[in-house]
């Protein structure tokens, strides 16, 4: 009996270890956009002329692979020129758990993104319509949600509610930020509970999912849009594919957890190519607002 319980417990620990392992993404996706004249497509391997790619919104003209782009590009792409006014840009993370290497990671991410944390929020206009907008940046510690991301999303929700203007969030995140422990988990409750207030005022909220949106962010505000739109080929879900594979010890079906898979299983409303993103958002807002 003692032996049996011990064995089961070990198996259980073993499983737990796999279960909770890093919600990772494939290494090929980690490559930043390289500088230089030529860029190799991460998906089909085609050598592409950088300027062409830039003009094509960083979508491969051959295989339509959507490169990961910065928060700045999304703001440019979605908002009418010159209309963005940043809010809460002064909020910065605190290493209150004295967590290994956290200050170093923050510093490096700040340098890489020009942001103080993994999200930029503010107001702007889309085809003349006032909106509150938040854009996450995966380059800031994997777009992870700590206290700052949660607080900024909450404040954006409150502003949208007060001003009665639609909220748009462009998501890119590996989940809650381990370095802020339990308080990062509580940001899921902070954001998801506040969304009730927006619904009460009948203010639309559009959630845009980019590669990847998983774990704590997907399991809170990212999933709760009145419309949930995904870019093609984005990794979406709760657990990372590697964790799942190691837990169930089976091959995952092709395309598992990608936008197309999620659409097929009824988890998102539509897949929209980057070049049609703004147009789609405008159409949706006009429907929701009956304009």
């Amino acid at each position: 009996m003692v032996l049996d319980a011990g064995r089961i417990f070990c198996y259980y620990l073993f499983m737990r270890w796999f279960v909770r392992k890093e919600k990772g993404i494939k290494s090929k996706e980690k490559k930043p956009i390289p500088d230089g004249v030529w860029v190799k497509c991460d998906s089909c391997g085609e050598i592409l002329y950088r300027k062409e790619l830039e003009k094509n919104l960083w979508v491969c003209p051959r295989c339509s692979y959507h490169f990961r782009i910065s928060h700045k590009k999304y703001l440019e792409m979605l908002l009418d020129e010159g209309t963005f006014k940043e809010k809460d840009g002064n909020l910065a993370p605190v290493d209150f758990l004295k967590f290994k290497d956290y200050p170093k990671k923050i510093e490096k991410s700040m340098k890489n993104t020009g942001l103080k944390d993994a999200i930029i929020c503010g107001e702007g206009k889309i085809e003349g319509m006032d909106v509150e907008i938040c854009v996450m940046d995966f380059k800031f510690i994997g777009g992870s949600m700590g206290s700052v991301v949660g607080e900024k999303v909450k404040r954006a929700i409150y502003r949208a509610k007060e001003r009665k203007v639609p909220l748009i969030i462009v998501n890119a995140s590996g989940g809650a930020r381990m370095q802020e422990g339990i308080l990062s988990l509580m940001q899921m409750a902070k954001t998801a509970s506040a969304l009730n207030l927006l619904a009460e005022e009948k203010v639309p909220y559009i959630s845009i999912l980019t590669n990847p949106t998983t774990a704590g962010v997907m399991a809170s505000y990212a999933s709760l849009g009145d419309a949930v739109i995904a870019e093609p080929g984005a990794l979406l879900g709760f657990a990372g594919p590697r964790v799942i594979q190691q837990t169930i010890k089976q091959e995952l079906p092709p395309g598992f957890q990608r936008s197309e898979f999620m659409l097929k299983h009824g988890m998102i409303d539509m897949i929209v190519e980057r070049k049609n993103l703004k147009k789609t958002v405008v159409t949706l807002l006009r429907h929701f607002l009956n304009k």
């Binding site: 279960v19 899921m188 409750a189 998801a192 509970s193 998983t214 774990a215 997907m218 399991a219 809170s220 505000y221 990212a222 999933s223 709760l224 979406l236 879900g237 709760f238 657990a239 990372g240 964790v243 799942i244 837990t247 169930i248 089976q250 995952l252 079906p253 598992f256 957890q257 299983h265 009824g266 988890m267």
Partner: peptide, 18 residues
């Protein structure tokens, strides 16, 4: 973390409950 759990919207179920 499993295939069926993802297919049936593990993230969405958690988000909606919260």
């Amino acid at each position: 973390p499993g295939i069926g759990a993802e297919e049936r919207g593990q993230a969405l179920a958690i988000a909606e409950n919260i």
